[in-house]
Design a protein around this nucleic acid. Sequence first.
DNA 1: TAATAAAAAGATAAAAAACTCTTTTATTAC
DNA 2: GTAATAAAAGAGTTTTTTATCTTTTTATTA
Lengths: 144, 144
Amino acid sequence: MFSKSCEYAIKAMIFVAQKSKDEGRLSAKGIAKGINAPEHFIAKILQDLSRKKLVQSMKGPNGGFYMEKADFKTSLADIVKAIDGDKIYNGCVLGLKACSQKNPCPVHNEYKEIKRNFISMIEKNTIGNFTDKLNSGTYFLKND
Amino acid sequence: MFSKSCEYAIKAMIFVAQKSKDEGRLSAKGIAKGINAPEHFIAKILQDLSRKKLVQSMKGPNGGFYMEKADFKTSLADIVKAIDGDKIYNGCVLGLKACSQKNPCPVHNEYKEIKRNFISMIEKNTIGNFTDKLNSGTYFLKND
DNA sequence: TAATAAAAAGATAAAAAACTCTTTTATTAC
DNA sequence: GTAATAAAAGAGTTTTTTATCTTTTTATTA
């Protein structure tokens, strides 16, 4: 479904959103620990997200990653598109490049609605939503 | 979603089901051409499917891959499980090993129903169904 | 029985994804 | 203005996935 990088990206975004509210800027190292991801690997991903303005960053002492108000409106879809591109939007289940409504693969119509629901789900859910839920204590981010 | 191997496996199964009905046994080479897959790679996959009895095989001249009546009842889910294992059934969207209904990740509940629909889709759809559809001419298998 | 056709198996290679290490640059505090 | 801190950037490694090449085994047919 998602690449490992994308899984990390989503977890990191949720983590930063939740923690940086009261802890200020977070270092890549701290984020890595918080979501159980390899430090330098998550650093790269954060750089990428930062370049694409989904998260803010600052160098130097007391620097780190943080979020501005607007960033809480970032949807899962925004993150997925930033990291994995649009293959979830455009890709065929069977990997056929020419597959479309007009020229469907055998699974196209069966998959169509599932795909629509999935896309609607990642578009509806924002980082802000998850942060609220996490604060209510019923959800977990780091558990392996 | 599916691995490349799994995509090939599904396409190969549909192809064999459809063609071997009137053309008898099909060589790995012919199947490779028919679905536009690398010959030796699809051969490996077919060996695997054959070992798991999802498709029949026979060595020697006029040998090849074919299907018995019962094989047409194979579902997409059977193929997916044979090639990609059960990660679609058991895996968490965010890759968290301990994620479950009791200990859910933030996306768990949002994803739950989509996953259920997807699983129900791959379990309902059998190779036989697709073959019928292909024969009616509205679907394509090889188009890149 | 020999030649042939085709799967099975084994080994290797190439490409992509995941992960690590090192150096550079920006910021802050002293 | 120097030292410390942390992101950014670059280069490199490991692992996994995808793909290819070669040999062996088995069945068929001439």
